[in-house]
Amino acid sequence: RAKLASVAALSVLGTVLAVAFLAIAAWYVFPVLGHAIPFTWCIVLGAILAPTDPVSVVGMLKRLGLPAPLQAVFAGESLFNDGVGVVIFGVTIGLATGDSQEVTASEIALSFCREAIGGGLLGALTGWIALRVLKGQRDPHIDLLTSLALATGTFSIANQLGMSGAIAVVAAGLCFGTSYSHSVFDKASRKELDIAWTLIDEVLNVL
């Protein structure tokens, strides 16, 4: 919560600037290579490339040993910029393919609300439901299996509803770090979850 404003500003403004920079660079580079491409397709390419991969960013931050508050800002930005990139992609792909002739500000705002805000609310809901399901039992294996089901299930539901799966899963995961979660997990369960998800994180980093 303390870093919400910084993360939100970087996620939105940073991603928009990155898309613009990449689109302009592609627009100038492709003609030099003998392939003149319309600017709308350059924006689509920028929207694909701009959002950073959260797994690699978090892994790099850990290796660099930056202060925890600074790591939280960078990691948060890399986790939430997906929604902004998806909105820009969705808007410009219609223009590039000719499916839509013009885009209004209201359409952009509605798309952003559905992808980012809708995904966040969905993740918060599924995360809260998972904690309620786990409350009252003390089996670390059930906790781990539920967390895996929460991640995959939330992502699938978000995609079906046209929301950002990445943002939904991040919001669901944040529920496992709330003060309420400390009454759900004991120390043994928390340790098992940390070990398992750290291993998954390292495997994804290697890939």
Rank of each mutant, 00 (worst) to 15 (best):
I117V: 15
S100I: 15
L121N: 06
F74P: 01
G85D: 06
T97W: 05
A36Q: 13
T92R: 00
F80V: 00
V29Q: 11
A47V: 12
E115F: 10
A50H: 12
L122K: 05
G14S: 08
G118T: 01
A130D: 04
H35V: 15
C42V: 09
W27R: 07
G120K: 01
T52M: 08
I88T: 10
T97H: 02
Q71P: 07
L61K: 08
W27T: 09
G123F: 03
F74S: 01
G123M: 07
G76F: 05
I117G: 03
P54S: 15
T97P: 01
Q101I: 02
G65P: 11
P54I: 10
Y28M: 11
G120C: 02
P38Q: 12
T126A: 01
E107Q: 07
L122N: 09
S111Q: 09
C113K: 03
I48S: 11
L64P: 04
G59I: 14
L61S: 09
A50R: 09
I24T: 11
G123E: 04
G76E: 02
I48A: 13
Q71V: 13
A116W: 06
D53K: 09
G123K: 08
F112I: 04
E102M: 03
I117C: 05
M60W: 10
P38N: 13
Y28G: 09
L45H: 07
L61T: 09
V58G: 06
H35P: 01
G83T: 02
I117S: 05
V87Y: 03
R114M: 12
P38D: 15
S100Y: 08
N81I: 00
A68N: 09
W27P: 07
P69G: 12
G118V: 03
T52E: 08
F39N: 06
F80H: 00
V91H: 05
A68K: 09
L13T: 08
L22R: 11
S106A: 14
G34T: 12
E77K: 00
P54L: 14
L45F: 14
C113N: 07
L131K: 04
F74L: 08
L49F: 13
A18V: 08
V55G: 12
W27Q: 10
V84L: 01
L13W: 02
A72T: 13
L64C: 11
F112T: 00
G120V: 01
A116P: 00
G120R: 02
V87Q: 01
W41Y: 13
E107K: 02
V73H: 05
A72F: 02
G120Y: 00
F80K: 00
L64V: 14
G119P: 00
A109T: 04
L95W: 00
C42A: 14
I24Y: 07
L122I: 11
A36C: 09
G34H: 12
G123H: 07
K62P: 06
P67W: 02
L13S: 04
L45R: 10
Q71T: 14
V19A: 10
T92A: 00
L110D: 01
V32R: 15
G85L: 08
T15F: 03
F89G: 00
I117T: 05
Q101R: 10
T40P: 02
I24H: 06
V19D: 06
G34Y: 13
V44G: 11
W41Q: 12
T92S: 05
V57I: 15
V29G: 09
L33P: 08
F89D: 01
G94N: 02
G85Y: 04
H35K: 10
L13H: 03
G120L: 04
G127S: 10
L125N: 07
A47D: 05
I43G: 10
P54G: 14
D99Q: 14
C113V: 08
